[in-house]
């Protein structure tokens, strides 16, 4: 296997998928989605403030 970032990521993804339970995976995804929502909401707030200024 060629030494590349993508190949290493792929291997880690395979290991992750093989060991994680459905529940754990859902928890991780929910946490990420909450985090992303917060980041996006911060972006919107900042842009609104910039428009107001």
């Amino acid at each position: 296997m060629e030494i590349t970032i993508d190949n290493l990521k792929q291997v880690k993804k395979e290991i992750f998928e093989s060991k994680i339970t459905k529940e754990e995976k859902n928890n991780i995804i929910n946490k990420i989605e909450d985090e992303i929502s917060k980041i996006l909401s911060d972006f919107d707030k900042k842009e609104e403030m910039e428009i107001d200024e």
Partner: peptide, 8 residues
């Protein structure tokens, strides 16, 4: 997701 996979 990449960060989470790495940690896990």
């Amino acid at each position: 997701i990449n960060e989470s996979i790495n940690k896990y």
